[in-house]
Amino acid sequence: MRRAFETLRDKPWIWSFLAAGLVWIATVMVTGGASAGGLTHAALTFAAFTIIVGIGQMFVITLGPGNIDLSIPATMTLAGTLALKFMGVQDGLILPGLLVAIGVGLAIGIANYGLIKLLRIPPIIATLSSSFIIQSTAIWSNRGLRIRPPDSLGAFTTSSTLGIPNLALVALALTIVAWILLERSLYGRWICAIGQNMRAARLAGVPVDGVRLATYTLSAVLASICGYLLASFSGGAALNMGAEFLLMSIAVVVIGGTAVSGGFSNVPGIWGASLFMFLVVSMLNTYGLGAGFRLIMTGLIITCVIIVAGGRRSTAR
């Protein structure tokens, strides 16, 4: 029994999957098993979006205390809006549309780090301020008719392959890339070094500014890809489409087992946490509890997890 507990404690990502599983069971029980398939399908679809932005947020948070990207929702909105506008419902422009979205992400990421580095603005404030400017740009560029996504793209995002939603497959592919980056690549080592001790990292030859720039850009690019997909999935880019993803992106990082103090990240945990968060919402809906309870539960879960997980290491200073 003790060994089982220790194994569980050593692999923090297991918690989130366990929790997700429990909630799934609780939800399915209410309908007597009839909704199992539909619930799983919906969970995978909607969690996919949270996973994609969660990965970006995870990279940024791993950079160390104080690093966070609050411009994710605005980036999603702007990228989705501009990409759909560019594609103009034409199938042939699907890939260029994706490139436009990625381009938006690149520009925002670089601008964010420019504010952080050149103007020495703390990341919280830099990304918060830029998010307002980005949001305004999105609002301004979205004047007019609601543009639909190209038909093939819309179909792609709403259908499945071998029973698994395509969006989940995309999220899976991105997760694998992220995992390789963090666990196996030079860049991943550098991020974790900076997150544990930025000064020691610099003194050990890690190009701190370059890595941070790349990370903030990566987060913005993932957010824009997510915006591109979400806008296509929803049949158009709404101005508030990114709203709930801000807290969600941070929540799935924290609940998934990544250290908020930096230096340690947990990629599989993001899946467990995303599924868990969606299932909690579904469960509450199934039990007839409204939006208010959903918000409260979400907030309490996050707050409790972070309180239990604890904060900055006291040795690092």
């Binding site: 544990q196 001790n197 000064r199 020691a200 990292a201 230096g263 040795t315 690092a316 200073r317």
Partner: peptide, 8 residues
């Protein structure tokens, strides 16, 4: 602890 070690 300040300049060298990565404790995790």
């Amino acid at each position: 602890n300040v300049d060298g070690v990565f404790p995790i």
